[in-house]
């Protein structure tokens, strides 16, 4: 199951990867300036595995962004995929 808020896609996973490490803070993604900032604004924790960030929550939670509507995520584990662009 996939959920999207702006340039972030949350893909449901069965479980966290074995080598994932807790990732401090609520920041899911962000770039130059606050226009691309996504924050976990509810229960749940972030984990890092390789280049991917994961959200794991036992209760429904929310993702906040200054411009987009709040995104509701159900309980579960989600891999966070950042939108990319082609750069020749």
């Amino acid at each position: 199951m996939q959920f999207r808020q702006g340039d972030l896609l949350f893909c449901a996973e069965d479980r966290l990867p074995p080598a994932s490490q807790p990732h401090p803070g609520p920041i899911l993604a962000g770039g130059q300036g606050s226009d691309h900032l996504h924050l976990l604004d509810g229960p749940g924790n972030l984990y890092l595995s390789g280049n991917f960030l994961y959200v794991a929550t036992e209760q429904p939670t929310w993702v906040w962004h200054p411009e987009h509507a709040r995104l509701a995520l159900p309980a579960g584990t989600f891999r966070v995929i950042r939108q990319r662009q082609y750069e020749p």
């Binding site: 401090p24 803070g25 609520p26 920041i27 924050l39 976990l40 604004d41 906040w64």
Partner: peptide, 11 residues
């Protein structure tokens, strides 16, 4: 945002 503030400050 209270939750964001708390988590960020701790980190």
């Amino acid at each position: 945002l209270p939750r964001a503030r708390e988590k960020f400050l701790r980190a």
